[in-house]
Structure formats: C-alpha cells, structure tokens
C-alpha cells in the first residue's frame, strides 16, 4: 500500500520509509496493549496507514497517565502554560507541510488543508494568550455583607476525557487547547475518519515541552473506548465533540457514575469555535472565605 502513503511522492528509485502511527500516552508512543489495529483510509476508501485500535485497558492506562500529570500541570504558572501552548504552535507551524500532506491524504483539498493548518496554529496561539488572562476576566472578589475577604476563582476540573471531533486538526486543537490551557489534562479519543493528523500531533506535543500525560491520544473506535472513559470514576469531565445526539446521550449516562461534568460540542465546522468560554466550561468555581480583622 506504499503507493497511497501520503509521503510517498519520492523518487522512483528510492523506497520511502513509512511511519508507524502509534498512540501517545504519558509522553511515550506505545502501541495498543491489545495488539489490534485498524486501517486509516483515504478518501477513496483505500487504506493509507495502520493505526492502533485501542482497548478499554488503553483507556485505563491513559487516564492513569493523565491523572499523574494533572497536579503538576495545574501547578505550573499560567505564564509557563502559555509559553508551552505557544511552543506547540511553533512546532506545528514548523511542520505545516507535513500536516497539509496528511490532511490532503485524508481527503481535504490542498488549499483548504493549508488554511486548516494555519487556523490550527493560530488557535493554539490564541489559547496560549488566554492562560494568564481568563482567570482575571472570570474570577471575582465578592462583596459579601460580613467582614470577610471572599473570592471566587476558577480551578481546572482535573482529567478531561475528550471525544475528538471529526475535524482532524482544527477541531482537535480547538478541543484540546482550551482544556489544557486551563490546567486540565486530557485523554483524547480519536475515532474519526482521519486519525493521522492526531497521531502526528502527538509528536508535535512531545517536542513542545508539554509534560508527558497532559495530552494522551488514543486511536480506535468510539463504541469501544467512549463508554469506559465516560464511566471512569477518575475522570472529572467530558468534552464530547460529536453531532450525534445518541453518542452524547450514552456518554452522559455513563458519566452519571461520578457526576462528570459534560460539555457537548456538536459542531462540524470548527472555524469559529474559539472563545474563553471553551476554557471556563472545563473549570470549577471555587469560593474562598477569610475573615478581615486584626
């Protein structure tokens, strides 16, 4: 199937080196513990790569990695998180050509592919700038009627399970960037028809000073991975990027186990899905009281 490989436009006398697409968990690139694979297909239905078909145990391991990374990531300064998000943008920009090729191989028109990569880079830059600002905009000092200093701040929910949208790069970055900008760590289920930008995005993250475990990317099938993730009691929130109401409904039912917070993003076009509310929807409000006296 080398003829269909996206990077296959090499000289005829040289055999191209093909990439094995693996998942990204805890800062490493393992294969699925299950040993299973699926095929990523081109627009005409021909296979272009093998991808991991992750199992519920891979979900479990990814949650473990995300939990282990969460306190440390949330404990970074907002400035540092901003720099790291900006670094992701830098790395993605540098790999623009690769992602355009991947998108094109998945069926995106070449000029649209270029626009999508640029938009994804810009989205990361946008959220990089929010890390040290959303708290200022959305937290409050509350003028209570007693002698207390009272303030409400936003804290990350913790570990967020993300069902990645069909939009393979812009949607992916639009979902993940606000989650991690606010100090959450994520387990991202890539179940759409174009998984290769996501697996390669793991490489971008890995070279961007993002601590291992902050973003974990699993490929596979929604019907195998979503329920265990949605039911997992050590996951605090779900970001369900799917226009299918049945998917949202079944995940929401699983989420009841530990009352996960659930945000649903049914968008198919992610061009305008950008606002600080994408961050705050994955935050908790904490109100703290302290006496004022001498």
């Amino acid at each position: 199937m080398s003829e269909q490989r996206p990077a296959g436009a090499a000289a005829a006398d040289r055999l191209p080196v093909l990439k094995t697409h693996k998942v990204y968990v805890g800062g490493r690139f393992p294969r699925s513990e299950s040993g299973r694979f699926d095929r990523a297909l081109g627009p005409d239905g021909t296979p272009i790569a093998n991808i991991c078909r992750c199992s519920r145990k891979d979900v479990r391991d990814a949650v473990t990695a995300a939990r282990a990374a969460q306190a440390g990531w949330a404990g970074r300064t907002a400035y540092n998180r901003g720099q790291i998000l900006y670094r992701i943008a830098e790395m993605l920009e540098g790999r623009s050509a690769q992602f355009e090729t991947l998108l094109a191989a998945g069926g995106t028109a070449p000029d649209e592919a270029a626009i999508e990569v640029q938009a994804a880079v810009d989205r990361l830059v946008h959220y990089a700038g929010w890390t040290d600002k959303f708290q200022q905009v959305f937290s409050s000092v509350n003028p209570v009627a007693t002698s207390h200093f009272n303030f409400s701040i936003l804290e990350p929910m913790g570990v967020i399970g993300v069902l990645a949208p069909e939009s393979p790069l812009l949607g992916l970055t639009s979902a993940v960037a606000p989650a991690i900008a606010g100090g959450n760590t994520t387990v991202v289920l890539v179940t759409g028809s174009q998984p290769l930008p996501a697996t390669t995005f793991g490489e971008v993250l890995n070279s961007s000073d993002v601590p291992g475990g902050v973003v974990n990317v699993l490929t596979g099938r929604s019907d195998e991975m979503l329920a265990p993730l949605a039911a997992h009691r050590d996951v605090d929130g779900l970001l369900l990027c799917s226009p299918d109401p049945d998917v949202a409904r079944s995940a929401e039912i699983e989420a009841v186990h530990n009352l996960k917070r659930v945000a649903v993003r049914p968008h198919e076009d992610w061009t305008d899905v950008q606002s600080p509310y994408e961050i705050t929807d994955l935050q908790e409000v904490k109100t703290t009281w302290h006496p004022i006296g001498s």
Partner: peptide
C-alpha cells in the same frame, strides 16, 4: 517562662 498565648481571630470573637 515565656507566656505562650494562643492567636486570636478578631472576627471570630465578634
């Protein structure tokens, strides 16, 4: 012996 007095929170006292 030094006098060890506990801290007092004025708002709580009020």
């Amino acid at each position: 012996a030094p006098v060890e007095s506990p801290p007092i929170d004025a708002v709580g006292v009020e």
